[in-house]
Amino acid sequence: MDKNISFTLKVWRQRGPKEKGAFATYQMKDIPGDTSFLEMLDILNESLVNKGEEPIVFDHDCREGICGMCSLYVNGHPHGPATGATTCQLYMRRFKDGDTITVEPWRSAAFPVIRDLMVDRTAFDKIQQAGGYVSINTGGMPDANAIPIGKDVAEEAMDAAACVGCGACVAACKNGSAMLFVSAKVSQFALLPQGKAEAAKRAKSMVAKMDELGFGNCTNTRACEAECPKCISISNIARLNREFIKAKLKD
């Protein structure tokens, strides 16, 4: 059994996109170590509601690391101090009795705060809509091994496809760059025959959308890769650069 811990929670509260925000401090008592971070916030919210106060607004959905909705910047890390895990997969046993835990929303011009810890990530949807799909007819489900694909290629494509679109890469980046996300979305298709047909068009239109929405320019600091809950590699960024430059040189 995990021990119970008591700690101080510093949470960013902001009533609306245009309002000024500030940190609010809460004392948390006897939280079991096997409580998830989001359950801990639920406990806090319940007590706030019982006291007649506004609960803390934060994004969440699946609570099992697959939807990418949860998005908290905990003690200087997007998704908290655990590696390869989303905020919903973070457990209170990671923290010590008497700690102060600081919780902030993603900070990036392209992800404005909606309220408290919830930010607007429609910018990612717009980038996806600009080309993050396959629109040619690829026929029905092929028989296994009808289209031979090398194991390492298949694995790299699968690793890229693990991106859940959470935006932690942007939140971690000092340049507010979305290159890790865009490169994962481009790579998952560029590596496979069904995606290759539209690879050039996809790279061009997704990068154009990314630039238009005001994301920054990648300077290869690798903060994104270190903080990504799905451990997406920056070799995908090299592939995106390659696809983009090749496509432009061909024009």
Binding site: K10, G21, F23, Y73, N75, G76, H77, T102, E104, R107, S108, A109, A110, A172, C173, K174, N175, G176, S177, G214, F215, G216, N217, T219, N220, T221, R222, A223, E225, A226, E227
Partner: peptide, 30 residues
Amino acid sequence: LTLQNKKARGGQGYAYTVKPKNVEWASQNM
């Protein structure tokens, strides 16, 4: 590029920051 990146980052910074592992100091101070 540096000015564009500052703008993309937005006006409000984080209160609590740590340098993630594997990030070279030089890369953030070019």
